[in-house]
Amino acid sequence: MSDNKEQTFFTALSDAVLNMDEGTVEEIAHRVIKEKIDAYRAIENGLVDGMNRAGQLFEDEEYFIPEILLCSDAMYAGLNILNPYINREQQRTRKKVVIGVVEGDTHDIGKNLVKTLLDAAGFEVIDLGRDVQPRQIVDAAIAEHADVIALSTLMTTTMDGMAAVVQILQESGQRDAFKVIVGGGPISQTFADRIGADGYAPSAPAAVKLLHKLFKDSIYV
């Protein structure tokens, strides 16, 4: 198989993810398997590449939440087909993120978007859902041996819960075990600094960039 031909498949996968075309992604993924193209590289250079391009369009305000969700569906459709064909040596332990919306918030759209983009960026994401109490978040992070605690809120009413998470970590002497990042409508860098979080991201793509910065671009443990 020539590199050129491989690249044609990768580009087609990437484009199909970007175009929210689940059916085409599945069709090409099956052909990747048939042609014995490296599944791992098809994921990285095809599916993930397409999702990263979608993330860029989101940042540029050409794509919005409905488009990102459909791109993500297309990416997962491909992952489901290609994942079983990845070699064991290629599977490395990825940094783990527990993500949740602090108790009391109205909805969790922002959190779902951050989860999708972190997934696409290669992090292993454990979604605790919405309405999670600060203590539960800390317990889950410890149990999961997570590297990151990502907290999202939509309303000023639940910002105290974010401070509580950091406080619980400090009191139990586990503050240094995790990077704590926060985001959401009412949150600012000033607030993140005040509660002692490791970082603040104003948007979902920014959350991905923030983690890359905090981990010096390595998603692997």
Binding site: M20, P66, E67, L69, L70, D73, I109
Partner: peptide
Amino acid sequence: AASIINPMAFYKELRK
């Protein structure tokens, strides 16, 4: 609408 249908599913429907 996004409170009676799973919001993620509903947002996708707007486009799809």
